[in-house]
Structures are given as C-alpha cells and as structure tokens.
C-alpha cells in the first residue's frame, strides 16, 4: 500500500482514538465539566490559531485582525440560530459566517495586503476595530449589550470534528501548489513575482482562507459560550490568538496545537491563583520566548508520512543487508 494512504489512515485512526479516549474519560468521570470546558476552549483556539498561522507563518503577512473575522462568524451564528434554533440552523449559520468573513477578507485584503510588516498589522487591526464598532452599533446585533441565550447547539464532539476538518484543510492547502506559491512570496516577493507568481492573488487566498477558519471558530464559540458581545472581539483577542501562533512557532501547525494546549492548561491551572494568575501567565510567556525565541517547535512538523518513509528506507536497507 502506498505510504500516502497509510499515513492518511494513521491520522484517521489517531483522530478516532482521540475522540474515543475523551468519550471514555468523560464516561468514567475523569473529565468533568471544568476540564471539558478547557478542552473545548483549546479546540476553538486551535481552529483560530491554525488559520492565523497560515496567514502569518506561511504567507508571511502580519495580520492583527483575526478577532474581527471571528466576530463575523459568532454573530452570524447568534442571529441565525435565534431564528432557527436547530442543528441545521447552526450549520447554516456556520456557512453564512464563512461566506461573510470571506467577502469581508477580500474587501479588507485588496487594499491592505500590499502593505508590509507593521503597516499591515496596523491596517488589519483597524479593519477589525471597524467590524467591532459596526457590531456595537447595529440593532440586529443588540449593540454593546451583545447577544445571549444563544442555543447550545454544539458540544465538544462538534468542536473536535471541526478541529480535525479545519486542520486537514489548512495543512493540505499549505502543502500544495498554493502553499508553495504563498511560501515563495513570504521568502522573497520580488523573486516570486519574477517566477510567475501573482503576489496579490496568493496573499489574498491565504488571508481569505484564514478568515474563513476564524469565522468557524467564532461560530463554535457563540454556541458553546452562549453569550457574545462586541467587547469579546477586540484587539486583545487578536493578540491572544497571535500569542498562540508565536509561542508554538511561526510556520509550524504542530506547534500551534501544542501552544494552544499548553496555554489552555496553564490558564485553567492558574484559575486558583486569583490576581497572580495573569502575572504568572505573562512570566511563562516571557520565559518561553527567552529560552525558545522561535517558539516551542520552531518550524518543525509531525509527519507520519515522513516517518513511514524513513521506516521504509530502513527496512529496505536491512532487507538488502540480509540478502547479502
């Protein structure tokens, strides 16, 4: 059997095993509501951060507006499910949220993506603030009070499946023609352009794709927390997602998973420290950045396929040794 299918099956088995494990642990009572809550938060953060890592780590565009796209998904879900409080309504709202986020990303991206580095960061931050201010002033979004009593239409299984799906999409996107184009632009835009790559088109593609996953994260957040307000989607929330990306390693999806988990656990464990919590959290961040400036994993990725390939080579080598 080809390695690619074996690797795909391994990942599928791993995902299924993870699902089964959580199920069993909830059944026997090891995972209580408190820990379940933590796992869901980690899951939603993974969805948000992998999308942002595609924009920052792979296409090299420093975006600080991720919470804005998250807000679009969250509000789409809150508004639609208040009219259609069914699972079907929820999935419809996810699709609508994705569509709105993609359209807004195109509108924001075309003028801003020609900016570089810190200029782009400021521009995207401003765009996200515009989204927040609009949500703050519309009647349909209930203004600054936000929306509450959003029906609880998604538990941890939905979040788990969504984490798997969005990760699959983003990782596969990053390892394809599109991924090669956006990484070439990140490395050297002038050389990429001289090699026949349209920088605007591909930067926009990565930006729109990241925005779409942010909207999914927002939708899940809305139905899980059941209350949203414009204040939940400010600059600090964008930075919180950015911290996960930087901490895990810009350009490493595995690192993003790890950082989301580490920060999620840290945040939960520190709940009992009261006012000291944010101080310890900040110190932990500083410590990681001092001792591991490129993030927990740098640019390293876990790849079952590469592992199988290596094993295959070793087996072939030992087989040929035996034959001699």
């Amino acid at each position: 059997m080809a390695t690619k299918w074996k690797a795909a099956l391994c990942w599928l088995a791993l995902a299924a095993a993870g699902f089964g494990l959580i199920n069993v642990l909830i059944g026997v009572g090891v995972i209580d509501t408190f820990i379940e809550n933590m796992l869901v938060t980690i899951g939603i953060n993974i969805i948000l951060a992998t999308g942002l890592n595609l924009i920052i780590g792979f296409s090299g565009q420093f975006s600080l507006g991720h919470a804005g796209f998250m807000a679009l998904g969250a509000y789409a879900t809150a508004i639609i499910t208040s009219a259609m409080p069914t699972v079907g309504g929820f999935y419809l709202s996810v699709a609508v949220g994705i569509a709105i986020a993609m359209v807004v990303a195109v509108i924001i991206g075309i003028p801003t993506l020609r900016l570089r580095g810190d200029y782009l960061a400021i521009a995207t931050m401003g765009a996200a603030e515009i989204i927040r201010v609009i949500l703050n002033n519309l009647k349909i979004t209930n203004g600054a009070a936000g929306m509450f009593n959003i029906p609880a239409l998604a538990g941890w299984p939905t979040v788990y499946v969504m984490v798997c799906l969005t990760t699959l999409m983003i990782v596969n996107f990053a390892r394809s023609r599109a991924g090669r184009a956006i990484q070439a632009i990140r490395e050297d835009e002038i050389a990429a352009e001289a090699s026949g790559i349209d920088p605007t088109k591909w930067k926009l593609a990565a930006f729109v794709m990241g925005a779409a996953t942010a909207a999914i994260g927002g939708s899940l957040d809305a139905v899980y927390i059941q209350t949203i307000a414009p204040g939940n989607f400010g600059i600090m929330n964008s930075i919180a997602i950015l911290i996960i990306v930087v901490l895990g390693g810009v350009g490493s999806m595995t690192g993003t998973f790890m950082a989301a988990a580490v920060l999620g656990v840290l945040d939960t464990v520190l709940q009992s420290f009261g006012a000291l919590r944010m101080v310890i959290y900040a110190l932990a961040l500083i410590a990681i950045m001092v001792f591991k400036p490129s993030g927990l994993l740098g640019r390293y990725e876990v790849s079952i396929r590469a592992w199988l390939d290596r094993k295959g080579v070793n087996n072939a080598a030992s087989n040929s040794n035996r034959a001699e």
Binding site: S176, R177, A178, R180, A181, Q183, A184, E187, D188, I190, A191, A192, A194, S195, G196, I197, R299
Partner: peptide, 22 residues
C-alpha cells in the same frame, strides 16, 4: 534571490505554479 528557507526542490516547484492548476 532564492527562497532561502525552502528546499531546492521547493524553490524549483515554486517557479512552476503557472504551468499547471490544482
């Protein structure tokens, strides 16, 4: 001006993106 952190293979493939569609 190479794509410094990409491998040689990725450098070459990045210059082929307009020759096919995925």
């Amino acid at each position: 001006r190479l794509f410094a952190r990409l491998t040689v293979r990725e450098n070459i493939q990045a210059a082929m993106t307009h020759r096919y569609h995925e």
